[in-house]
Design a protein around this nucleic acid. Structure first.
Lengths: 142, 142
DNA sequence: AGTGTTTTCTTGACTGATTCCAGATTAGCT
DNA sequence: AGCTAATCTGGAATCAGTCAAGAAAACACT
């Protein structure tokens, strides 16, 4: 909760510490798989205003520094999560777009290996489980 | 190659048969994981012209009818493939965007099951292997 | 604390993919 | 041949994300 923690993480990642960055990082800790808009909204609640650009820039910097992971489910805009480095996977609701984390069954990345990699150097296996979340499943029977 | 085949597949799927649709379908058979633009280009080569709209509409109709599968790798626009119903997976080159099919190791969809589905009704598991294709791997060593 | 350099933030314009809409056209049934 | 619903055209609009130039702020060094 304290932003001291966020400041330390920023420095540890070799990034400059700005109000915007601290707020983006704490928003990421607080919100579940937010998109750019939700993050911008959360930061505006704290700071009064931020340009959307700044949020994009900050998120890119975080992504490159390995502080966050960017996920882009088909048909949705980009989401971000601070959980990083454990190559976990996602459950995605095709009804409401809700996303939940799923631990990876096997060890380290790429936790899965293709049968025939066709000469590719495979770095990570991204696994998305598509289905319906509990509330969408009961709402839309089929 | 013959469009007779395409016509039959369209009818079998309960779709109206139009020149545009036949050409889109044969283009899909011919091109490897094309995007909307490549498909539109291929169709224009055959018919002289098509509106981009028509291509989008046709692809949506095909997708809904289960004739094609739509794939949307993060950071790329939508690609389409006529191989359907076998829940195979993809190798994606993060250098050039090239996509290759990979057979699924296990049986039918969802070939993988999450450890803890958090109450979700899981329908399919989408697996994307990210890495470098043979030519990008040699071009960019790291 | 004061200054300078570099990075970050703001503002505003812009692109590319995709969708929406209204009207013209055409496939498939009678 | 004629009807009707589905499809196609053209054009405008939307949405996510990027680009670019200048203002502001962070860090490093006195």
């Amino acid at each position: 909760m304290t932003s001291v923690d966020a400041v330390q993480r920023l420095r540890a990642a070799g990034l400059r510490v700005t109000n915007q960055r601290v707020q983006v990082l704490t928003a990421l800790d607080r919100l579940p798989h937010p998109d750019v808009d939700s993050i911008a909204g959360a930061v505006r609640d704290e700071l009064g205003s931020v340009s959307t650009q700044a949020v994009y820039d900050v998120l890119r910097a975080f992504d490159e520094a390995g502080l966050v992971r960017r996920i882009e489910p088909a048909g949705h805009s980009a989401r971000f999560e601070p959980r990083v480095g454990d190559n976990h996977h996602h459950l995605i609701c095709r009804g409401c777009g809700r996303i939940e984390d799923v631990d990876c069954a096997q060890g380290e990345a790429p936790c899965l290996h293709p049968v025939d990699a066709a000469g590719f150097v495979v770095e990570v296996a991204e696994v998305n489980y598509w289905g319906l979340c509990p509330s969408c499943a009961t709402a839309d029977p089929r």
